[in-house]
Amino acid sequence: MCLILVAWHAHPDFPLVVAANRDEFHDRPSAPADYWPGHPDLLAGRDLRGGGTWLGITRGGRFAALTNFRGSEHLKPDGPSRGGLVTGFLTDSRTPDVYLDAVTPEASCYSGFNLLVSDGKTLGWLGNVGMHRRLLPPGIYGLSNALLDTPWPKVEQSKSALAAALHALPDCHPLFDLLRDDRTYSEEQLPRTGVDIAFEQLLSAAFVRSPVYGTRNSTVLIEDIRGKRLFLEQTWSPDGEPTKWRQFELSPIH
């Protein structure tokens, strides 16, 4: 994932709203969102190379998502797959605080990441670059390939668009519109993360479009106050055209 936007208890009728884009090399094999064999309560896409996922939910109300932290100095080529941290939480029963406490001692073994986890009652964040970990109060959050709420232009613009899109709920079109924003930003507005400046500018868009690397999936998740969750996923071709559409409705488990 390269852009995750979360409205956590920021709307009286929808306590959790997520809009996220997964950016990845187009030749990395993956499967679209579905219920997992062996874990029938787990709904997520699947990274067919690493075996984990970038974002998922469960019928019981657990949610987790992850972004990579950009920068070659944060890579651990021999480290475990970061997607396993998402799957680990979704197949666990511990609270976010306890789960993050358990994985923090080994977090430095992974390449740079940011992990968001929620059990429907609390929302936690762990970033292993600088070892940041906390439970998040109600609010609107933006996460790209740096620390939570780092004010990259696309993060700031997308957080503002999410705040506006909340007024249209349960209409999800504005959420997908903000994820489809392919504007790039000028060189003086860009962060310096160690990649070529032309690539940095390409990556500055919320929706990244290129033949080799770009936005592969756009996902919207909304949960209402009754616990009903709507999970929507649009996958994209290398030229930025829509391919598969997936829609799931999950009712709360009583």
Rank of each mutant, 00 (worst) to 15 (best):
M1E: 06
A7M: 08
A7N: 05
A10I: 03
H11E: 08
H11P: 09
H11A: 12
D13Y: 02
L16F: 04
L16H: 05
V17A: 08
V17S: 02
V17C: 06
A19L: 07
E24H: 05
E24Y: 03
D27L: 09
A33M: 06
Y35V: 00
Y35T: 00
L43S: 03
G45I: 02
R49T: 08
G51S: 04
G56T: 02
T58W: 02
R59S: 10
G60Y: 00
R62K: 11
L66D: 01
N68R: 03
F69D: 01
K76W: 00
P77A: 04
D78L: 08
S81L: 01
G84I: 00
L85Y: 04
D92P: 06
R94K: 12
R94W: 01
V98F: 01
V103D: 06
P105S: 12
E106M: 10
C109A: 14
S111Y: 05
L115N: 06
G120P: 11
K121W: 00
T122N: 10
T122C: 05
G124Y: 09
N128A: 08
G142E: 12
G142W: 07
L143S: 12
S144I: 09
N145A: 11
N145Y: 09
D149Q: 06
T150Y: 14
V155M: 07
L169W: 11
H173S: 15
L175Y: 10
F176Y: 13
D177F: 03
R180Q: 14
D182F: 04
Y185V: 10
S186L: 14
E188D: 15
L190S: 13
L190F: 12
T193I: 15
T193S: 15
E200N: 12
Q201D: 04
L202D: 09
S204P: 14
V208I: 15
R209P: 01
P211C: 10
Y213N: 13
G214T: 11
T215W: 10
R216W: 05
N217Q: 14
I225L: 14
L230M: 10
F231I: 09
E233S: 09
D239K: 01
G240V: 11
E249M: 11
H254R: 13
